Computed example of a mutant assay.
Amino acid sequence: MKTFFCIFLFSFILMNTGLQAQIKRNLYTYQAAQVEFWYPNEWQIDEEDKVATLQNDDGSLSITFSIMEADQIEEALIELEAIIQTQLTQPNITTEPEIIELNGMMGVVSELEGSINGSPVQLGVFIVDSPQNVLLVLGMGHEQTLQKNNKVLDKIIKSIKPI
């Protein structure tokens, strides 16, 4: 019985350590904004020129993390409008901007739709006053892809926290 208990305890410790290592592997630190976030195993992340792009396995859905030039969220909203006008054809705000609190950081969230290169897309926009700068989190994909991955996207967004 003592041997069984020792083996069980050792197995539990190994399993728990493996789980903690798995969770650590799935945390990404975005130094430019001094935040970290969780992402799924099968997703890929790439950072270039202080822009981190997270994509699902087939590339049909992406979340981009970038720093805005603005010092405050109000200024960032004006900057975002200029960015959207140059990148998105026929942009349409589908939800009114809403003030949110995300793990102690204040922000604004909204949803848009439009098209990029003739292809219709849905966008989720989060502008967060991160510890370092104003952080823009932009999720983009087709409506069906977004609906299919809604729980994962929610988990990624809710995991964004200051480091």
Rank of each mutant, 00 (worst) to 15 (best):
K2V: 07
T3V: 07
T3L: 06
T3P: 02
F5K: 14
F10H: 09
L14F: 15
M15C: 10
Q20L: 14
Q20A: 14
Q22V: 10
R25V: 13
N26T: 13
N26W: 01
A32C: 00
A33W: 03
Q34V: 04
Q44R: 15
I45K: 08
E47K: 03
K50Y: 00
T53P: 04
T53I: 07
L54F: 05
S60P: 01
I63S: 06
S66C: 02
I67D: 00
M68C: 03
A70M: 04
D71E: 14
D71Q: 11
E74L: 02
E75D: 14
A76T: 07
I78E: 15
E79N: 15
L80V: 06
L80R: 13
A82L: 11
I83V: 08
N92C: 12
N92I: 14
N92V: 12
T95N: 10
P97L: 09
P97D: 10
E98M: 14
E98Q: 15
I99R: 14
E101C: 03
L102F: 08
L102K: 13
L102G: 07
M105W: 03
M106L: 05
G107D: 04
E111I: 04
L112S: 15
E113R: 15
E113K: 14
S119I: 14
S119H: 13
P120N: 09
V121H: 06
L123V: 09
G124V: 03
F126G: 01
I127Q: 05
V128L: 06
S130H: 01
S130W: 00
Q132M: 04
M140L: 13
E143Y: 10
E143A: 15
K148D: 15
N150C: 02
D154F: 07
I156G: 04
K158H: 08
S159K: 07
K161E: 08
K161G: 02
